[in-house]
Design a protein around this nucleic acid. Sequence first.
RNA 1: GCGGAUGUGGUGGAAUUGGUAGACACGCCAGACUUAGGAUCUGGUGCCGUACGGUGUAAGAGUUCGAGUCUCUUCAUCCGCACCA
Length: 805
Amino acid sequence: MAYRPEEIEPKWQNYWEENHTFKTPDDFQKPKYYILDMFPYPSGSGLHVGHPEGYTATDILARTKRMQGFNVLHPMGWDAFGLPAEKHALKTKTHPEASNRKNIDNFRKQLKMLGFSYDWKREINTTDPSYYRWTQWIFLQLYKKGLAYPSDAPVNWCEELKTVLANEEVQDHVDQGYTVVKRPMRQWMLKITAYAQKLLDGLDDLDWPVHLKEMQRNWIGRSEGCTAFFALDGLTESLDIYTTRPDTMFGASFMVIAPEHPLVDKITKPAHKQDVDLYRRQASLKSDLERTELQKEKSGVFTGGYAINPLTGKKIPVWISDYVLISYGSGAIMAVPANDDRDYEFATKFGLEIVEILEGGELPKGAIVQRVGGTIINSQNSELNLNGLNVSEAIEKTILWLETAGLGKRTIQYKLRDWLFSRQRYWGEPIPILYTEQGEQIAIDEADLPLVLPDVESYEPSGTGESPLATIDSWVNYTYKGIRGKLETNTMPQWAGSCWYYLRFISPDCQHRFVDEEAEKYWMNVDLYLGGAEHAVLHLIYARFWHKVLYDLGLVSTSEPFKKLFNQGMILGEDGQKMSKSLGNVINPDDIVARFGADSFRLYEMFMGPLDRVKNWNTDNITGLSKFLRRIWSLVEDDHGNAVTFCSQDSLETLRVLHRTIRDVTADIDRLYFNTAIAKMMECLNEFKKQEALSKSSVETLLILLSGFAPHICEELWQKLGHSSSISQCIWPVANEEYLIENMVTLVIQINGKVRDQIQITPGLNQEECLKMARASEKVQKYLEGKEPVKVILVPDKLLNLVVK
RNA sequence: GCGGAUGUGGUGGAAUUGGUAGACACGCCAGACUUAGGAUCUGGUGCCGUACGGUGUAAGAGUUCGAGUCUCUUCAUCCGCACCA
């Protein structure tokens, strides 16, 4: 029989399912390995070729680790709350749960078609009440700790989606063409800022890609500086500003406050009120994008008010401008035009004073922004002299002086904002909070969870910016423990369910706790977490936050959830562009599997290149992998379906190749170099095919190495070789050192760094012996021309370089 | 603008610590075979040159006996951040 993937692949998928081959035993004695894929959102369009890339990589590792004696946790589930299902429900008037189930069934079928070794008994779904019961429970833990609170601050409102968005989501939506505006609304916030420092510090010990850690660091955005209190001329209030450069304070020649700053009305003098009000109105109408447009010219108006520079005692004007953001620091700055490009631009546009405070400036060409190395000038009052100091000395000295004078204090600022956690949506976890008729807010008892989503007629958001739940009186009006009240109608964002799903996989059926305590201690933390980089500052920072809260509450045993993280690179279409329906360059895994089989597909995705690199799809290249599998097949059975005859003893050469392959493939899998692992198995096969005959054991060993990559064909051939149990139950081979030692090695001979000859030597020859052998070579003699080398370099068993003048 | 990464044949890509550049595969060329297939097998294939040889890892310089690998400069591509005071 020839190799027919379409016959053997379903056969083995059924076998694995019927025999529960990949069920993870609750055996806490064995060493464990928790290998996690980012679980998918089950969209209506099914898997694309990007999903199997990461899933194949983790599957190879999972299968290999099992054979290496680890108890492997390798689960899969569905991140199924979210907007697309709700939009579909709006369009078709079907319950999101129905379309969800259909999509999940399709995803599951596709994943099984690819032969992944998930423990399907642990499958979870974030929209299942038995799951979101615990999402709500964790929310209540945050609530009780004061980390979840309602707020009336302006939020990011998306007009088209009729819902609010978290800061982390805004950019993405704007890129997709949505309009996002600031609008004040009462919303639930999670106090992620309380964990800013912990989230930052935790990054140091994580084995994550550098760029990803860097993105999180930037997002958290820690900076060190000081708050200074500027007295306001004629007012009792002071204007507090944050600066990282107090050393430049002598050069502060005006102040700028954000249009939304609470002191604007007080500072503004009647003569300027009209201008200021107009400016504020214009600013409030601009979207965030317009306001932060970079190339935009600076705008602003004078308030008529003055502040006092605490160092110089001089009166300086206070302006308002939208280049100062209300959401960062105190929403007000001291402007030092000599030292800051933005302030410089503003000062020159409006003719404001520029005071030079750093030596070597080239005013009026532009500001000098120097963090280090600059020398300070013009900075002296009766008590404080910064002249001649370098920047860091001057910063320290100024902060100390301000603190002593009661005019300021050392401050650490973060860019990270609290997490906007409620959405005006139906298809999400209800927030388990009740508002009594007295306006009190009470949490539903943990024992009464889950608070289940009601069925609704219409999924249309109410026009008022409230969730569809607000229109269901029978659900909203709620009597709880004899108290009449109204339930919170906002739901949680899609990110909620994915904040802790990796914990639920550990004990998906646990009824008394969100995760079984003993099992959690055994399985955590995740040894390898693999997924796309698009979650860098969303899912990955939210999940770390929840985990750290749970850790501080003593509910989990590790301070970080994902010890090692890896991003697979995107797979682009054959045209080198991102796959999209509109470009018509989408490759469907179903088609590829139908044409070539799942094993070839898996191998191809791994052979394309390094896992983390962006790669172009090329269907033609799959043929190479198909051919490889057919040649593997021929090791066991010939074209006519006859069993191949094995020999009893392999040649030494065969054993050398085999054991080198064992060593290299094992190492490559370990460091996720799947492309080179496959290349080495190909080399091994090429060598095998040159042999007259092979031993059964050598063929079996190669099959075991390959079985993580192409599991179906390996199972089939394993069975043909007479085994009755699954190849996945084999023990991973170990290279025998005896066969790794070479009896002859190639010594490269260079003359002046150029390769002139290669000779075979026995390993371990010293320089003198090598030189003697080299001199025997005709080619070498030709280049030496009787001259003596002035220098000889020997890299033992590799290279001999002779330097001749 | 700032930060990060990458740059190797016609193509995808190999090359722990500086030590034979181009493994493996696609494609292409030549040949064999046939149950004519989306086959299989054998050989070749960086570039220039008939051979000896020369040359070659984005460009340029440097360190070194020796550089794809280390240092500096420049260029290109990709990704992230972007008025964060």
